[in-house]
Design a protein around this nucleic acid. Structure first.
Lengths: 339, 339
DNA sequence: TTGTATGCGTTATCAG
DNA sequence: CTGATAACGCATACAA
């Protein structure tokens, strides 16, 4: 703001051409002769000219911006590292496509801003969260009716409109549970909220049950405690199970964060991990490999997930059809289950 | 986009008033009679009208948007949880002020986008990173010359233009080191890159040295290893020091992430933490309290930091003067140092 | 290949 | 308190 911001008209003036020509030249349009184009671009660089995005967007009716709504209320505590990892990969993927990313945290308590409002600021919306979209279903339905472009990270929830991209949670949980069984564990506790609020955890629960039944183990209600994805909830759920005095030799946690709490709780109660009790997690957050013991967990490919989310939302914006799909998870074997 | 998006003109039509009146009414201008205002707002709600931000911004020449530039190249690895925590608090603080947040990760290798470019999309820029702003000093200088509004999280770097907000790193490191000394530790290793690329770590180094000298301990070059803020770098640096076979009884790590790697390394080498070797970190990332042993560390108040960053950048935007300042850190004592 | 005319939807500036 | 009119800076359509 030294002197007032240069405009395309200023450049036109200096270059002795019309303003649209400048506009075209800056967009590298082949309709402009190489000569004038280079002249114009030189002047633009000289003046440090930048296209005014507001004017450009207003005119072209497109924003070149994606909105990322994190549907998790972290309160004052931390956001799940897994989502932050996703945030990183989505940001990079969006930048690669020339899109900006508007980030906003959807506090449950907050008013209904960021619905249509954001739909006006962005071309498309990516929803991210631990699947408690049920709380947002009204808004999402309205979005859908308004013809907004959006994609949801998570499992396909019947009855919920829109497109989905997620990890094959059932398969991941199945493989993790099977791994425990193959190591000789027979009494496998399950920690996670399997209500309708957490469709992702429900899928993981299904995989867990499937592995149990395929290997002739039976489900024990006493070894199941509900918890949302925080260390503290994992700790408390583990405590709950311990207090039921039902013996168990391993725990499947629906997220790494909960597994951290679980391991801490087990240790404080005098159990050794993995000797007394094996633990598996889900997500493969960075800390997982540096814990003591390093955590066996199910890895979700956040890089690919981010790229696909962006790719898909751009397809939607371009009016193309996309299919909801699931990404394959990968079991990462470390020491928290013994060997 | 069922039928074409409603405009203020549509509403004016329906309400039988002029279009500017609609605009005023929607902004709750007191210049509009309560009667017409409510009528207009009712219609707007009915039509689900939303102000077109592009048009609004174009006309008012202001974007109501802040840009957050994360100056850390995470490569394919994770972003430091500390910054992500900051990201969360900044997002919330910005939202509270009615500002959107444009997030972008500044990859070192990348071309020079996100300089002025973002300056056109946002009213102000917040720089976040582990202080290696030296690499960005050119761009920052240009930004400054262009009169852009920006604020940098980190220590005041002499010669670098702009405003700063940071944590009192020297004080934090001083207190942490003093804590070790008071527990009877005499040979305190230091892990962190103290080159000019990491002014934050330099300040922590100063605090460390100050505590040593005030308590009559002398600095031992053999116990200092450089590392950037990742678990792996912390691990390797610790290994380096161990191989020097210089005895030590404690480690000051410049970040929690490095402390995680340090503890893992010590354990793999058969040392017990804190019995053999005490460890302190810096940042107080969420994992710190759930590690084994829970990590003694220096807490930075990310909530307050985020609020102040936003508050300050808004002041700058409004043409007010602000002072660079430092926030007080807080030593969080856990078990990694014994007792 | 370039220029002319016009409009995107809003807010600012007047005058009434 | 309200209305007419202009303008923000760019991109589209069409003509030359």
């Amino acid at each position: 703001m030294k002197d007032s911001k240069p405009t395309s008209l200023d450049i036109a003036h200096l270059a002795g051409v019309s303003q649209p020509t400048v506009s075209r030249a800056l967009r590298n349009s082949p309709l402009v002769s190489k000569e004038t184009r280079e002249k114009i671009q030189a002047i633009a660089r000289e003046l440090n000219y930048k296209v005014d995005v507001n004017a450009s967007n207003l005119r072209s009716q497109s924003t070149k911006t994606l909105a990322l709504l994190l549907c998790e209320d972290p309160g004052d505590s931390m956001i799940n590292p897994f989502f932050l990892s996703m945030l990183g990969s989505i940001t990079r993927a969006a930048a690669k496509e020339g899109y900006d990313l508007l980030v906003s945290f959807q506090q449950l308590s907050e008013d209904w801003r960021a619905d249509y409002e954001d739909a006006n600021k962005a071309n498309g919306i990516i929803f991210l969260g631990y699947g408690d979209y049920t709380q947002y279903i009204d808004r999402i339905s309205r979005l859908d009716q308004a013809g907004a472009h959006f994609i949801t990270w998570g499992p396909v929830v019947p009855g919920q409109p829109g497109h989905f991209l997620g990890c094959d949670n059932t398969l991941g949980a199945y493989e993790a549970t099977q791994h425990l069984i193959q190591l000789g564990r027979k009494h496998i506790a399950f920690i996670g909220d399997t209500s309708d609020d957490c469709p992702e955890f429900q899928d993981r629960y299904r995989g867990y049950l499937k592995a149990l039944s395929e290997h002739g183990l039976k489900y024990n209600q006493q070894l199941h405690a509900s918890a949302n994805s925080t260390e503290t909830m994992g700790f408390d759920a583990t405590q709950t199970i311990l207090e039921r005095t039902e013996p168990f030799d391993s725990v499947f946690c629906c997220s790494d964060l909960m597994a951290i709490g679980t391991i801490q709780c087990l240790r404080e109660n005098g159990y050794s991990v993995p000797d007394d009790i094996a633990v598996v997690g889900f997500d493969d957050i960075p800390t997982a490999s540096h814990m003591t013991p390093p955590l066996t967990t199910v890895q979700q490919d956040t890089i690919k997930a981010g790229e696909l989310l962006v790719e898909n939302i751009l397809s939607l914006i371009n009016g193309e059809h996309i299919e909801s799909r699931l990404l394959p998870p990968q079991l990462i074997i470390r020491k928290s289950c013994g060997s």
